[in-house]
Each structure stands twice: as C-alpha cells, then as structure tokens.
Design a protein around this nucleic acid. Structure first.
Lengths: 230, 230
DNA sequence: CGATGTGTTGATGTGCGTCAATAGAAGTGG
DNA sequence: CCACTTCTATTGACGCACATCAACACATCG
C-alpha cells in the first residue's frame, strides 16, 4: 500500500473503522495524480470507485444540453466524494475534473459496499455525511431562487470568514470563474460584485485572497441592499 | 396501535424489517391529521419525529429573510419525509405544511436511531433514499442555473408524463402556485408558459389536469426554443 | 517577447419578476 | 339555490437584475 493511502484515515467517514477494516478497504486502493484541467469521470459513467482528495482541488459539475457548465461542488483536500454513486445505479450523477494539479486516493466501490453492510457505524457516518450534503444543496436551491447574485456572493464570504472579530480573510481555492459558477453567477457578475463591495470599503481583493474588512457591514449590505449592481 | 399505522409498512424504507422491529418502531407512532394550510413544523424546530404521509399532500419549503417562499419538495401519499433530520443536529432543515387536508403517521426519532444502529439493512435503504434525494436536488440546482423557466416546466411535464406513446396525462397534485414555486418560477410565469404551450397545440389544460398532446414536440420545443415568453 | 489564459470593465439586450386589473372557481350563509 | 365573499388563475404593462457581447488590462509561460 502506497504511503499516501494512509492519509485516508483522516477522512471523517473512516474514523471509527477498526484497523483491519481500514486495511481491507484500502487493500485495492491506488493513488492517482491529475494535472491542470484533466477529467476524472463524466456524468453517467459506470461508477467503480470513489475518491479521497489528498492535494489540489476538484470541481464536480453538470453540463447543459448546449455545453454550459454549472459547478455543483468544489472539493478540497481531506474530503471524500462520489460515495453516493453506489446507490445511484452505479452511475456518477456529476462529472469531475481537476482544477489544479491534484493527488487523490481511488477506492474501489466493491470493497466499500461490503464494509458498509458489516459496519453499521460506518453506514451511520455516511448517513450523516449525506445528510449534510443534502442540507447544503437545499441551501443552494434556496439561495438560487430567493437571493440575488450579490447576496449569494456576500453569504459565501460571510460563511467562509472566520467568526472572530469584525474582519477576517477568505481564500478562494480555485479560479474565480469556477467559484462564480459554484455560486450560480457569471464570472463577469462575480467580478462586478466584488468590485462594488471593494468600492464600499467592505472588502479588499488581492487575486484569490479576499480580506473582509467590515464583516458586520457586509452582513447589513446583504440583508438590505444586495440587489442590482449599484 | 391505530389501524392506519400499519399502512406504514408500505414505505420502501421499512421493507425488509422483521415484524418485531416494525412493531418496535411503530409502538410509539401516532396518526395526525392536518387541514388546509396547517403547519406541521418549521425550519429550525427541534426534530423529534419524522413522518409517513397516508393521504393529502405536504409542501416542504424555505423562507427568505423577507418572507418569500420556495417549495423544496412536494410530498404525496406513500412517502416518508424528515428522516434526515436525525443527522442534522436534531433540527429540521425546512418547514412543512399541508397543502390539502392530510393524514400522516408520526414516528418518534428516538426509536428510529436505535433501530438504524441495529439493522444495517435499514441503514442501507435509508442511504439509498438519501442518495436519490441528493440526485434530485442536484437536478434542481442544474435546472435552476442552466435552464429557462419554460424548459423547467417542460421537463417537469415530460418526466411526469407516462412514457407510452406520444401523448399522456399529467396531474398536478397541488395548487398551481405551489407547483410553480417547486419549479422555481413565479405563478404568473407558470401560467404564461402553460398558455404558450397550449397555443402551440402541445398540451391542453383543464385545472390541475394537463394533457400532453405531443410529447415529442414538447421535447423538441424544450431543446430548441424554451426561452422568452413568446 | 509573442502567445495564451484569466480577470476587469463598459455597452446593450432580454427573461422574467413585479404590479395591477380582471376573470373564474369555490366556499359561505341566508 | 342564488347573492356574496374569498381565493386561485390569467392576462397585460412595465422595470430590473443579470446575461451577453466585446474590448481591454494583466499575468504566466514557453
């Protein structure tokens, strides 16, 4: 077993597995590396493995009939993804590609289902994980229908911003166009919203590092204005 | 145990439970009735039970800061809902209210968690259920960002329409404004889209009963036009 | 230093929400 | 059974938030 594979033990999903179970699960796991914009799998592909991200970043996305793309989720190191494919007729419900050079552990689903059956603790942890993802998606649906572009961006900054004090830093782990898609906004609009917030003195932007200067003011802006592009 | 409670056995979630397990799960279950627009629980409420719908219809929804409502899911008889609350810090992630007089079985979560731990089959069935809901929400997110109002309405009609032949009937189980919210569209727009499809001879509408006259034409309209209000 | 990709900013268009008026449908009471 | 209220649905006029199209600034890299 590759040394990297042991990093998987860090995943919340696997906490509580007995060493021999972990061994069994990872016995056929392999480490893969992807570069740049390399694809990992496509929506509808037969699902034979799920993944744990060690380094880099991944985007999970859907394509429309005419090729437009919506990023459903951004995966950062320490997260597992595509576990739910086991229960979806063995097909991936989204496409996955690297957004920067990535290293990940590929774990065959075959072993996984067997262990899930035997280990109710693991099944419960997976239930907890899926429930949280469900909750996240409900938030997204609500935000997409009931909030403006500006409000979604502001909410993202607020929830990423460390809760101490009235200011803090947010690092965007991917290119801005990817984050824009994740937030359900065109890249141009994303840029304009950030510019507008900057001009108000609420934030300052340096590439993918954003400093929230006035947390409370940002929250107030979201809850009162937030619409339009002014 | 009330006679109605035994109807719960029909739920896919409970198939495969041994009779004594089912008995245990339902020993503290009660039947509740709601009328008209009565509320069942609100987002953020402490979750002490989940539900199986026997008759009527429910809407699960989110409210924005200024009181606008987005229907996340419409529940029809035979479905369970709010099971996932167990794993979300014991709080409901959405609000629930009846859309028409409803009868439902209320099952305490306390018993549920105990049984989940013991019965890995049930845990796996719940994983399957959550996975499907996850998939559904991913579809919603994609549709809300990459499709127009018209395309979403058309897609709904197409997926509800029985697959035999080139025509079929769709029954909307709730008032049109509720269905409109579910589809992420204002009631006025929903009305306009249906009128437009009617004028094209693709469908005919009688209250909440819609006859799809030209399934293939509807699909083509969605994939080519679908935008604007023309 | 040209080439390629990412981000910003401006001008313009449009899908759909909003507001408002009307028409049906359904429920209520005498 | 029919006036009257109330609610849902439809249709029109208008405005706005955001997409689109396009030009340009900047960075990165061979």
């Amino acid at each position: 077993m590759h040394e990297d594979v042991k990093g998987v033990a860090a995943a919340a999903l696997f906490s509580g597995l007995y060493p021999d179970e972990l061994e069994r699960l990872l016995s056929h796991a392999t480490v893969r590396t992807l570069k740049g914009h390399e694809a990992l799998f496509a929506e509808g592909d037969k699902a034979e493995a799920f993944y744990f991200l060690l380094a880099g970043a991944m985007r999970l996305y859907r394509l429309s009939r005419d090729g437009d793309e919506k990023v459903i989720e951004i995966i950062v190191p320490g997260q597992t993804f595509a576990e739910a494919a086991v229960f979806l007729g063995g097909r991936y419900p989204v496409s996955a590609a690297a957004v920067s050079d990535a290293r990940l552990v590929e774990i065959p689903l075959r072993d996984f289902t067997r262990i899930l059956k035997d280990n109710s603790g693991m099944a419960l942890r997976m239930l907890a994980g899926l429930s949280m993802r469900l909750h996240q998606l409900i938030n997204d649906v609500q935000a997409l229908t009931l909030e403006t572009a500006g409000q979604r961006v502001a909410s993202y900054l607020l929830e990423q911003c460390p809760p101490e004090g009235n200011s803090g830093d947010v690092h965007i782990p991917v290119h801005k166009n990817v984050m824009a898609s994740r937030l359900g906004v065109k890249a141009e609009t994303f840029s304009r919203v950030l510019a507008s917030l900057r001009d108000r003195g609420l934030i300052s932007v340096a590439g993918t590092d954003i400093h929230v200067a006035d947390r409370e003011g940002l929250r107030r802006w979201r809850d009162t204005a937030g619409g339009g592009r002014a």
